[in-house]
Amino acid sequence: MTESQTSTTEGSATETFEPLIITFCCNWCSYAGADLAGTSRLQYPENIRIIRVMCSGMVHPNLIIEALSKGADGVLMLGCHPGDCHYLDGNLRAQARVEAIELLLDDLGIERERFRLEWVSAAEGPRFVEVIKGMIKQIKEVGPSPYKQ
């Protein structure tokens, strides 16, 4: 839980539940898409914290497991659309790991819905916002992380 959430998580649990979602953005497409959302002044809820990586393909499954087992309510991984990867096919490698990650989540009793992989290009500011809002909605439905400290 972070500072911005302390005020809102007090009170009745589900009504005011504001999830914390760690978002891995690749440097070339989705991070730029997030920048574009900013430049275009598109407004979205503040529930996400973006961690920049060079490619969605570099995000180790352990990183996702660590985040979710230490209390993140959700993890969103954003990469370039297939065919657009700056590193030829790093994004497809990321996609190939999704199933393994989901199995690991099952083992830990973490809902699969807490993790999601999506493609957002550098030109898709509106889509970035749409994906973020969708993920927040999804996590709100799942509820707070059982691992929340």
Partner: peptide, 29 residues
Amino acid sequence: GCGVCQATCPKAGIVVNNFKLSQLMEMVN
């Protein structure tokens, strides 16, 4: 430096400078 190797390695035997798994872990924590 795409780091596909880093995410594949089960033993932290290969890392990407400046985006090491351990460094990203610090950010998550």
